[in-house]
Amino acid sequence: MEIINTGQAGTVESSDCIITVSPSENGMEINIESTVKLQFGDHIRDLIIDFFNKKGIVNVSLFINDRGALDYVILSRLESAVLQASGYKEGL
């Protein structure tokens, strides 16, 4: 899978997160803002890297603004943003 444009999903509401992914030329650039960054910043990063690895995404720039979202919320927002960014339109 390849990131060819910008995709974004989520909200800034409590227990949610908003994720923006866009193309990159230098591998993975991951920028995390989180209300629980101190406790879970590394965990969120691992979650995202693991997701990209599984999808075979190498070049991507990601920005997540997390308001205390649980893992599966983060993953579904991530999936949605990535689908938009890879040019997938149907069903979104």
Binding site: Q8, T11, V12, E13, S14, D16, I18, R67
Partner: peptide, 16 residues
């Protein structure tokens, strides 16, 4: 009531 979070999210999605 977190209305401000809701409003910001809504406006962001409209702009998006």
């Amino acid at each position: 009531d977190q209305l401000i979070d809701y409003l910001v999210s809504h406006l962001i999605s409209v702009a998006k």
